[in-house]
Protein backbone atom coordinates (compact mmCIF):
# COMPACT_ATOMS: atom_id res chain seq x y z
CA UNK A 1 0.00 0.00 0.00
CA UNK A 2 1.45 3.37 -1.05
CA UNK A 3 0.23 5.49 1.87
CA UNK A 4 2.48 8.42 0.92
CA UNK A 5 1.04 8.41 -2.58
CA UNK A 6 -2.57 8.35 -1.38
CA UNK A 7 -1.90 11.17 1.05
CA UNK A 8 -0.12 13.20 -1.62
CA UNK A 9 -3.18 13.16 -3.88
CA UNK A 10 -5.56 13.64 -0.95
CA UNK A 11 -3.66 16.67 0.33
CA UNK A 12 -3.35 18.06 -3.18
CA UNK A 13 -7.10 17.89 -3.65
CA UNK A 14 -7.75 19.36 -0.23
CA UNK A 15 -5.37 22.22 -0.94
CA UNK A 16 -7.53 23.19 -3.91
CA UNK A 17 -10.41 23.33 -1.43
CA UNK A 18 -8.32 25.56 0.86
CA UNK A 19 -7.21 27.83 -1.99
CA UNK A 20 -10.81 28.41 -2.96
CA UNK A 21 -12.07 28.30 0.61
CA UNK A 22 -14.22 31.36 0.24
CA UNK A 23 -16.13 30.10 -2.79
CA UNK A 24 -16.28 26.58 -1.38
CA UNK A 25 -17.74 27.69 1.93
CA UNK A 26 -19.48 30.96 1.22
CA UNK A 27 -21.66 29.85 -1.66
CA UNK A 28 -23.37 26.89 0.05
CA UNK A 29 -23.75 28.82 3.31
CA UNK A 30 -25.28 31.80 1.53
CA UNK A 31 -27.60 29.71 -0.60
CA UNK A 32 -28.73 27.67 2.42
CA UNK A 33 -29.39 30.86 4.36
CA UNK A 34 -31.50 32.08 1.46
CA UNK A 35 -33.51 28.87 1.50
CA UNK A 36 -34.17 29.34 5.21
CA UNK A 37 -35.15 32.96 4.77
CA UNK A 38 -37.49 32.20 1.89
CA UNK A 39 -38.89 28.78 2.77
CA UNK A 40 -38.38 28.76 6.51
CA UNK A 41 -39.51 32.25 7.47
CA UNK A 42 -41.45 33.85 4.64
CA UNK A 43 -43.37 30.89 3.25
CA UNK A 44 -42.82 28.37 6.02
CA UNK A 45 -44.70 30.42 8.59
CA UNK A 46 -47.84 29.88 6.52
CA UNK A 47 -47.25 26.14 6.09
CA UNK A 48 -48.62 23.74 8.66
CA UNK A 49 -46.36 21.53 10.65
CA UNK A 50 -45.34 18.33 8.88
CA UNK A 51 -45.40 15.22 11.08
CA UNK A 52 -45.40 17.55 14.06
CA UNK A 53 -42.25 19.37 12.92
CA UNK A 54 -42.19 23.04 11.94
CA UNK A 55 -41.59 23.51 8.22
CA UNK A 56 -38.27 25.33 8.76
CA UNK A 57 -36.88 22.41 10.71
CA UNK A 58 -38.43 19.86 8.38
CA UNK A 59 -36.42 21.04 5.36
CA UNK A 60 -33.00 21.00 7.12
CA UNK A 61 -32.09 17.37 6.27
CA UNK A 62 -33.29 17.84 2.68
CA UNK A 63 -31.30 21.03 2.27
CA UNK A 64 -28.15 19.38 3.57
CA UNK A 65 -28.68 16.48 1.17
CA UNK A 66 -29.28 18.85 -1.73
CA UNK A 67 -25.87 20.49 -1.24
CA UNK A 68 -24.02 17.34 -0.29
CA UNK A 69 -25.23 15.43 -3.36
CA UNK A 70 -24.43 18.14 -5.88
CA UNK A 71 -21.11 19.07 -4.24
CA UNK A 72 -19.96 15.43 -3.97
CA UNK A 73 -20.66 14.84 -7.63
CA UNK A 74 -19.12 18.07 -8.88
CA UNK A 75 -16.05 17.91 -6.61
CA UNK A 76 -15.21 14.33 -7.45
CA UNK A 77 -15.91 14.67 -11.16
CA UNK A 78 -13.82 17.81 -11.43
CA UNK A 79 -11.03 16.27 -9.33
CA UNK A 80 -10.37 13.46 -11.81
CA UNK A 81 -11.50 15.24 -14.97
CA UNK A 82 -9.16 18.19 -14.63
CA UNK A 83 -5.87 16.22 -14.68
CA UNK A 84 -7.24 14.28 -17.64
CA UNK A 85 -7.97 17.55 -19.37
CA UNK A 86 -4.66 19.25 -18.52
CA UNK A 87 -2.55 16.14 -19.08
CA UNK A 88 -1.08 15.97 -15.57
CA UNK A 89 -2.79 12.59 -15.22
CA UNK A 90 0.37 11.08 -16.73
CA UNK A 91 2.04 11.36 -13.36
CA UNK A 92 -0.78 9.62 -11.49
CA UNK A 93 -0.85 6.81 -14.05
CA UNK A 94 2.90 6.29 -13.96
CA UNK A 95 3.04 6.31 -10.15
CA UNK A 96 3.25 3.10 -8.12
CA UNK A 97 -0.41 3.31 -7.14
CA UNK A 98 -3.21 0.82 -7.62
CA UNK A 99 -6.54 1.97 -9.01
CA UNK A 100 -8.06 1.37 -5.60
CA UNK A 101 -5.53 3.76 -4.06
CA UNK A 102 -6.21 6.39 -6.71
CA UNK A 103 -9.94 6.15 -6.01
CA UNK A 104 -9.39 6.25 -2.23
CA UNK A 105 -7.42 9.47 -2.60
CA UNK A 106 -9.70 11.31 -5.02
CA UNK A 107 -13.01 10.09 -3.67
CA UNK A 108 -11.78 10.44 -0.09
CA UNK A 109 -10.93 14.08 -0.68
CA UNK A 110 -14.20 14.84 -2.47
CA UNK A 111 -16.21 13.08 0.24
CA UNK A 112 -14.32 14.94 2.97
CA UNK A 113 -15.15 18.27 1.35
CA UNK A 114 -18.85 17.54 1.06
CA UNK A 115 -18.92 16.11 4.58
CA UNK A 116 -17.43 19.35 5.93
CA UNK A 117 -19.94 21.23 3.83
CA UNK A 118 -22.84 19.19 5.21
CA UNK A 119 -21.75 20.03 8.75
CA UNK A 120 -21.39 23.72 7.84
CA UNK A 121 -24.92 23.81 6.51
CA UNK A 122 -26.15 22.06 9.62
CA UNK A 123 -24.36 24.71 11.68
CA UNK A 124 -25.93 27.47 9.59
CA UNK A 125 -29.36 25.92 10.09
CA UNK A 126 -29.00 26.27 13.85
CA UNK A 127 -29.06 30.03 13.42
CA UNK A 128 -32.43 29.94 11.69
CA UNK A 129 -34.51 27.13 13.14
CA UNK A 130 -34.97 25.11 16.30
CA UNK A 131 -34.08 21.51 15.83
CA UNK A 132 -32.82 18.47 17.56
CA UNK A 133 -30.91 15.52 16.21
CA UNK A 134 -32.36 12.45 17.84
CA UNK A 135 -29.80 9.98 16.49
CA UNK A 136 -26.53 11.85 15.87
CA UNK A 137 -24.54 8.68 15.19
CA UNK A 138 -26.99 7.56 12.52
CA UNK A 139 -26.98 11.05 11.13
CA UNK A 140 -23.19 10.82 10.73
CA UNK A 141 -23.45 7.35 9.17
CA UNK A 142 -26.01 8.53 6.62
CA UNK A 143 -23.98 11.62 5.85
CA UNK A 144 -20.70 9.73 5.39
CA UNK A 145 -22.37 7.05 3.25
CA UNK A 146 -24.03 9.63 1.06
CA UNK A 147 -20.85 11.70 0.63
CA UNK A 148 -18.89 8.57 -0.28
CA UNK A 149 -21.46 7.12 -2.64
CA UNK A 150 -22.03 10.32 -4.56
CA UNK A 151 -18.33 11.14 -4.70
CA UNK A 152 -17.85 7.72 -6.31
CA UNK A 153 -20.64 8.56 -8.70
CA UNK A 154 -18.96 11.89 -9.46
CA UNK A 155 -15.65 10.13 -10.06
CA UNK A 156 -17.36 7.94 -12.66
CA UNK A 157 -18.78 11.04 -14.34
CA UNK A 158 -15.31 12.62 -14.28
CA UNK A 159 -13.97 9.57 -16.12
CA UNK A 160 -16.83 9.52 -18.58
CA UNK A 161 -16.88 13.24 -19.41
CA UNK A 162 -14.95 14.37 -22.44
CA UNK A 163 -15.74 18.04 -22.06
CA UNK A 164 -16.59 20.54 -19.37
CA UNK A 165 -20.25 20.60 -20.50
CA UNK A 166 -20.68 16.95 -19.65
CA UNK A 167 -19.37 17.60 -16.14
CA UNK A 168 -22.25 20.01 -15.62
CA UNK A 169 -24.96 17.94 -17.24
CA UNK A 170 -25.41 15.27 -14.59
CA UNK A 171 -25.53 17.54 -11.52
CA UNK A 172 -27.78 19.97 -13.37
CA UNK A 173 -30.12 17.61 -15.21
CA UNK A 174 -30.18 14.62 -12.90
CA UNK A 175 -29.07 15.30 -9.34
CA UNK A 176 -30.81 18.63 -8.74
CA UNK A 177 -34.24 17.59 -10.13
CA UNK A 178 -34.11 14.25 -8.32
CA UNK A 179 -33.28 16.03 -5.06
CA UNK A 180 -36.01 18.64 -5.46
CA UNK A 181 -38.50 15.89 -6.31
CA UNK A 182 -37.07 13.58 -3.66
CA UNK A 183 -38.77 15.25 -0.76
CA UNK A 184 -36.28 17.93 0.22
CA UNK A 185 -39.06 20.44 0.71
CA UNK A 186 -42.07 18.21 1.31
CA UNK A 187 -43.08 14.86 2.65
CA UNK A 188 -43.85 12.27 0.00
CA UNK A 189 -47.10 11.56 1.83
CA UNK A 190 -48.32 15.04 0.85
CA UNK A 191 -48.36 14.00 -2.83
CA UNK A 192 -51.30 12.47 -4.73
CA UNK A 193 -51.13 8.63 -4.58
CA UNK A 194 -49.91 8.22 -8.16
CA UNK A 195 -46.99 10.62 -7.58
CA UNK A 196 -46.18 8.86 -4.33
CA UNK A 197 -45.69 5.66 -6.33
CA UNK A 198 -43.62 7.39 -9.00
CA UNK A 199 -41.46 9.01 -6.32
CA UNK A 200 -40.47 5.56 -5.09
CA UNK A 201 -38.25 5.04 -8.14
CA UNK A 202 -36.29 8.16 -7.20
CA UNK A 203 -33.26 6.96 -5.21
CA UNK A 204 -32.86 10.34 -3.52
CA UNK A 205 -36.17 9.80 -1.69
CA UNK A 206 -34.52 7.03 0.30
CA UNK A 207 -31.47 9.13 1.13
CA UNK A 208 -33.49 12.09 2.38
CA UNK A 209 -35.97 9.90 4.21
CA UNK A 210 -33.26 8.04 6.11
CA UNK A 211 -31.42 11.23 6.88
CA UNK A 212 -34.57 12.91 8.12
CA UNK A 213 -35.31 9.88 10.26
CA UNK A 214 -31.98 10.36 12.06
CA UNK A 215 -33.09 13.91 12.93
CA UNK A 216 -36.74 13.53 13.83
CA UNK A 217 -37.36 9.80 14.05
CA UNK A 218 -39.74 9.87 11.09
CA UNK A 219 -39.23 9.27 7.38
CA UNK A 220 -41.20 8.58 4.22
CA UNK A 221 -39.90 5.02 4.10
CA UNK A 222 -38.50 2.72 6.75
CA UNK A 223 -34.93 3.39 7.84
CA UNK A 224 -33.89 -0.15 6.89
CA UNK A 225 -35.02 0.45 3.34
CA UNK A 226 -33.18 3.78 3.25
CA UNK A 227 -29.95 2.24 4.44
CA UNK A 228 -30.38 -0.68 2.07
CA UNK A 229 -30.85 1.61 -0.92
CA UNK A 230 -27.75 3.68 -0.12
CA UNK A 231 -25.71 0.50 0.19
CA UNK A 232 -27.12 -0.80 -3.11
CA UNK A 233 -26.20 2.45 -4.83
CA UNK A 234 -22.73 2.33 -3.27
CA UNK A 235 -22.27 -1.22 -4.56
CA UNK A 236 -23.43 -0.23 -8.04
CA UNK A 237 -20.90 2.61 -8.15
CA UNK A 238 -18.09 0.35 -6.94
CA UNK A 239 -18.98 -2.30 -9.55
CA UNK A 240 -19.10 0.22 -12.39
CA UNK A 241 -15.76 1.67 -11.33
CA UNK A 242 -14.02 -1.66 -11.06
CA UNK A 243 -15.36 -2.59 -14.49
CA UNK A 244 -14.13 0.71 -15.93
CA UNK A 245 -10.70 0.19 -14.42
CA UNK A 246 -10.45 -3.31 -15.82
CA UNK A 247 -10.85 -1.88 -19.29
CA UNK A 248 -8.69 1.17 -18.58
CA UNK A 249 -11.65 3.27 -19.70
CA UNK A 250 -10.71 6.87 -20.60
CA UNK A 251 -7.53 6.63 -18.56
CA UNK A 252 -5.36 4.21 -20.48
CA UNK A 253 -5.42 3.19 -24.07
Amino acid sequence: MNINGILAIYMFEMSRFRRTLFQSVASPVISTSLYFVVFGSAIGSRIQQIDGISYGSFIVPGLIMLSVLTQSVSNASFGIYFPRFSGTIYEILSAPLSYLEVVLAYVGAAATKSFVLGLLILGTAYFFVDMEIQRPIWMMIFLVLTCTTFSLFGFIIGLWADGFEKLQIIPLLVITPLTFLGGSFYSISMLPPIWQKISMINPVVYLISGFRWSFYGKGDVSVGLSLGMILVFLLICISILSYLFKTGYRLKE
Binding site: N4, G5, A8, F12, G87, Y90, E91
Partner: peptide, 24 residues
Amino acid sequence: PQELTTDAFITVWDTIKFSQRLFG
Protein backbone atom coordinates in the same frame (compact mmCIF):
# COMPACT_ATOMS: atom_id res chain seq x y z
CA PRO B 1 6.71 13.95 -20.70
CA GLN B 2 6.88 15.65 -24.04
CA GLU B 3 4.13 18.17 -23.40
CA LEU B 4 4.58 20.83 -20.72
CA THR B 5 1.83 19.40 -18.56
CA THR B 6 2.04 21.03 -15.16
CA ASP B 7 -0.41 22.29 -12.63
CA ALA B 8 -0.76 26.05 -12.85
CA PHE B 9 -1.50 27.33 -9.40
CA ILE B 10 0.71 25.37 -7.06
CA THR B 11 4.30 26.34 -6.35
CA VAL B 12 7.42 24.66 -7.68
CA TRP B 13 8.23 23.38 -4.22
CA ASP B 14 4.78 21.93 -3.63
CA THR B 15 4.72 20.17 -6.97
CA ILE B 16 8.03 18.38 -6.49
CA LYS B 17 7.07 17.50 -2.94
CA PHE B 18 3.84 16.06 -4.35
CA SER B 19 5.75 13.97 -6.89
CA GLN B 20 8.18 12.67 -4.31
CA ARG B 21 5.39 11.40 -2.09
CA LEU B 22 3.24 10.21 -4.98
CA PHE B 23 5.94 7.71 -5.81
CA GLY B 24 5.93 6.44 -2.26
